[in-house]
């Protein structure tokens, strides 16, 4: 068949007519990992914030402050809450931006940069949250000791007895440490695994880029 022979001739000289796919593109195809990891970071952070919001809705702090007879605390608390949500929203926006960046980059160098940037953002986010937990606990203790009538008996005892004071401070520090530890572990599990995978991708990219 003459047409088929013609096709064959064309076929065999045709090798260079295809738009070549780069190694990095192949890498991205078989992985799609980086962008899916960053997507998960975004999804998990949103879920996490939603869960915290639901929990905080379930516990109404206003009653507690009213009991303390210091209504001005409610305002301070509101300011703090708004500030906290503001910061977290900024983080979620950054996660979203990272996701868009990573899913659209085409060059190895840029992708590596974006991965490092994403890692940093997540690390800042985790440290901010851990810092906020410690800060809230300390503030909570200070408020309890300054204003809560239930604690005033303990306060009198502490004033008279150095040993009790030492024990109380010890317990408070231990409480903070335990909370810090629990949340550290929580974040480590939640984001640590994702970050580790992201870093493995980074190392792989570095090898290809050499």
């Amino acid at each position: 068949m003459k047409e088929l022979d013609l096709l064959k001739k064309d076929w065999q000289k045709n090798d260079n007519s295809f738009e070549q796919v780069s190694e990095i593109e192949i890498y991205k195809m078989i992985h799609k990992k980086s962008s899916s990891i960053v997507k998960w970071i975004l999804v998990i952070s949103i879920l996490e914030v939603s869960i915290w919001t639901l929990i905080s809705l379930a516990f109404n702090t206003d009653d507690y402050f009213k009991k303390l007879k210091h209504d001005e605390l409610i305002q301070y608390f509101e300011v703090l809450t708004i500030f906290n949500y503001g910061v977290i929203l900024v983080f979620i926006y950054l996660f979203y931006k990272n996701y868009i960046l990573i899913s659209t980059t085409a060059s190895t160098k840029q992708l590596m940069k974006d991965i490092l940037k994403t890692r940093k953002t997540v690390q800042y986010y985790v440290w901010y949250n851990l810092g906020m937990i410690v800060f809230s606990l300390i503030i909570g203790f200070v408020i309890a000791f300054s204003y809560n009538p239930d604690v005033s008996i303990l306060k009198d005892k502490i004033a008279n007895d150095g040993k009790i004071m030492a024990i109380t401070i010890g317990i408070l520090i231990l409480t903070i440490a335990v909370f810090f530890g629990i949340f550290w572990l929580f974040y480590r599990l939640l984001y640590g695994i994702l970050l580790k995978r992201l870093y493995a991708n980074y190392k792989e990219l570095k090898k290809i880029d050499l």
């Binding site: 796919v21 190694e23 192949i26 190392k203």
Partner: peptide, 23 residues
């Protein structure tokens, strides 16, 4: 990781055969 690297490299070099099938 080595497996991956060798796969990506070989596929990159032999990609025309796949392009042809796609065509």
């Amino acid at each position: 990781e080595n497996l991956e690297h060798s796969f990506v490299k070989q596929l990159q070099e032999n990609q025309n055969i796949i392009h042809k099938i796609c065509r």
